[in-house]
């Protein structure tokens, strides 16, 4: 299923490097070293729509994450394809959220966290010294488990990312576009100046998605984005995720196996101790997994 095509993919490689570092080292990508890391993956769409090969956007190589002495991620290697929905599933404490947060270096905010191995974004290890996590997070957006809009107006929430990047040209238009893509525009277009906290939970979460996509990232990480929502709001979010995958690479952590089966193209199953047990097309994982442990988990024998 997975074929390794060696391609030369150095798109945007330097954009996550902080300007100072890029300046004084005048570092140029080494084609021989990095390009071979990029490969493409054949990924079959769940419903047959997104068939074909896709570039690898993110790749973990022997990634280990520790919180003090506790190992949260155990030697994980996996490649995440572009413009696909990749689901990370597994029981509580299996490290799936930790893995997600190590992609955009949110674990940097936790003093106890320590990382070994490589995590490549477009062939560049995001843990290299010259990578600026702030720049990385502008390329790799995030939506959290509980909706966390800022206590500002709806408009200011969506405009936040653009404003901190001093990128305020056509701001109104781009806020509107982001809200439309997040399927929230029709509900809020007449109350853009009102507080985001007055929205319902499901609306708040779609607002957080609009906020994340307003800056046009390449990857959107979602950490159980629907777990705090009711079924109707959940299904709206799920529809939205499928649409987003047309333009973005989506990596979603979920507790809910049906959700993973419904919306994802690829599924990674983490089991206790931060071990990646199986990673394959979602169909294969749910219908014909290789590992007995994955089958037991999927069929509800544990977890």
């Amino acid at each position: 299923m997975t074929q390794d095509n060696v391609t030369d993919d150095r798109t945007d490689r330097s954009t996550i490097v902080s300007p100072e570092d890029a300046g004084n080292e005048s570092e140029t990508p080494d084609p021989s070293g990095e390009s071979s890391l990029s490969r493409s993956i054949a990924a079959e769409g769940r419903d047959g729509e997104r068939v074909g090969t896709a570039q690898t956007v993110l790749e973990a190589r022997d990634l280990n994450v520790y919180y003090d002495d506790v190992q949260a991620i155990d030697d994980v290697s996996l490649a995440i394809p572009e413009n696909r929905v990749t689901a990370l599933i597994g029981p509580s404490g299996c490290g799936k959220s930790t893995f997600l947060r190590s992609i955009n270096r949110m674990n940097d905010l936790i003093d106890a966290a320590r990382i070994e191995g490589e995590l490549l974004f477009r062939g560049k290890n995001v843990y290299d010294d010259d990578v600026d996590p702030v720049a990385l997070r502008r390329k790799v957006g995030m939506v959290f488990q509980h909706p966390n809009p800022f206590p500002k107006s709806i408009y200011d929430n969506v405009a936040y990312g653009l404003r901190i990047q001093d990128d305020t040209e056509n701001l109104d238009e781009r806020v509107e576009t982001a809200l439309k893509r997040a399927a929230l525009w029709d509900e809020v277009k007449d109350q853009l100046d009102e507080s985001a906290l007055d929205l319902s939970g499901g609306q708040q979460q779609r607002l957080c998605i609009a906020r994340a996509i307003a800056v046009d990232p390449e990857v959107i990480l979602m950490d159980e984005p629907a777990s705090a929502l009711d079924p109707i709001a959940t299904s709206k979010i799920e529809d939205l995720i499928e649409e987003l995958a047309e333009e973005y690479t989506v990596v979603i952590v979920t507790h809910n196996m049906q959700q993973a089966a419904r919306i994802s193209d690829r599924t990674a199953v983490f089991l206790t101790g931060g071990e990646l047990v199986e990673y394959d097309d979602t169909e294969t994982i749910f219908e014909n997994p290789e590992s007995q442990r994955v089958e037991d988990y999927i069929t509800g024998k544990f977890g």
Partner: peptide, 27 residues
């Protein structure tokens, strides 16, 4: 101020100063 708001700011690629002045202080 709940930590989730800081996380949201950092997740958007805000610096510590931007999170402090643009998110935490207004909140």
């Amino acid at each position: 101020v709940p930590d989730s708001l800081r996380q949201a700011g950092y997740g958007m690629g805000a610096t510590k100063y931007e999170v402090s002045t643009g998110v935490v202080i207004p909140a």
